[in-house]
Design a protein around this nucleic acid. Structure first.
Lengths: 220, 220
DNA sequence: ATATAGTGTGTATTTATTACACTATTAAAT
DNA sequence: ATTTAATAGTGTAATAAATACACACTATAT
């Protein structure tokens, strides 16, 4: 038996203290004018990983970003025109790296736009479910993945890092305990630099040291 | 674009102190005479969850067992005849519940047989990769799922439970610490019954109390 | 000078994790 | 009746990790 085969992509970034998701406005039936996850049909002979990269590139101008598979959604009724199996992926990009104007790339989609996770519009198909499931995965893996650092610029303050944790976990953390945990992990490189352009005490900047992270994880 | 659509199923059980996987011998090209995961094409209009149930039933005679999706495997080159997308699932059954003779159900597959995880035969397609990935998932989720209890009979001893943990984690555990952890979790109901038919001191039997487990998990 | 907003720090308590060795019970063998 | 073989069952001390909690410091804007 054959099925149509698409991929959908949950693209995260972090801005204004909030986790953001990239959505596009559909220009085709069904769900014309609804917001949906960026996604397309996978082409004949195309690896699905390449299709994800393509979508990411078309919507953000970014390349070579790691993407994680969430799973297949294949309900017979998820699409009014019969089964369309979609494999959902999630990827994380730095907000600042995405060109300010995201353009419509095909006739199927109008514009693309960031939405904060806590105020999503109504979504086409089962895309809300996909996003929810993806967030759960992000949450459970937060300490075993580099996701939080991919959401931040190269140099960041501990407060920003804490905000990313809080956004993903959906709860506030204690500042002192958080810093103790981070110091204890030892994945960060402290820079001899501080934040600029703030009208209050400037915070110290840090970098993520991927090598140390991988070494620590590898030992387990 | 359309693709062929199959599902493959990693069916686990536990016997003789080892985690076991059910495999079938292929009777068709490609990979004729190779061992492979039980799997089939999903039929038109059939939910993939129903296809998994069907396969489980055909191979074990069992129904109504929970199954977990592992993800889609869709490499263009995984099947010599062009892309065949497969969604892998895993399920767990009690060894004792499976009829002793597992019969071939279709012309595609000859026999089905349990193999202990630590001595699998060479496998068709990317099925070894699927099994490995599935085991990883089982391992990481061991404390947050009911998997271990699904591998055991309704009444079991603490030693049996420990063996299941050891089989999944792939390492030995300390008996006293293990029992302390289990007692501390509080998911087990101690029965006024002991093991029978053993030629040494009979161990106490326990039951898994699913309600307590779910309550505990829900509070988080 | 002072108001503002966020930075940066320590200690005590509780809770989990690890390491470690002997006695108790039963059925079978003698 | 006694011994043997096989597994069940149990506690404590040491260490490490997680939590709860409050105030002084500093850069900038006005």
């Amino acid at each position: 038996m054959q099925t149509h085969f698409t991929i959908d992509c949950v693209i995260y970034s972090f801005n204004e203290g909030k986790l953001q998701v990239l959505l596009t406005e559909r220009n085709e039936y069904p769900y014309k004018d609804w917001w949906a996850l960026p996604g397309f049909f996978v082409e004949k002979g195309e690896e699905m990983e390449d299709a994800v990269k393509r979508i990411l590139y078309e919507h953000t101008g970014l390349k070579d970003i790691f993407m994680e598979q969430l799973g297949a959604f294949a309900g017979v009724k998820r699409h009014p025109q019969g089964r369309i199996l979609t494999v959902a992926f999630s990827t994380i990009v730095k907000y600042e790296d995405v060109k300010s104007k995201i353009k419509p790339m095909t006739s199927y989609m109008r514009q693309a736009q960031w939405f904060p996770m806590d105020s999503l519009p109504e979504l086409a198909f089962d895309h809300l479910r996909i996003i929810e499931q993806s967030l759960l995965k992000l949450k459970y893996g937060i300490n075993y993945s580099t996701a939080v650092y991919e959401l931040l610029p190269e140099k960041f303050t501990l407060t920003q890092l804490q905000q990313v944790y809080e956004a993903i976990l959906g709860k506030d953390l204690d500042k002192r305990n958080f810093r103790k945990k981070i110091a204890n992990d030892g994945f960060l490189k402290e820079l001899q630099e501080v934040q600029k352009g703030v009208s209050y005490r400037a915070a110290r900047l840090y970098k993520f040291d991927k090598r140390k992270f991988q070494k620590q994880l590898g030992i387990d």
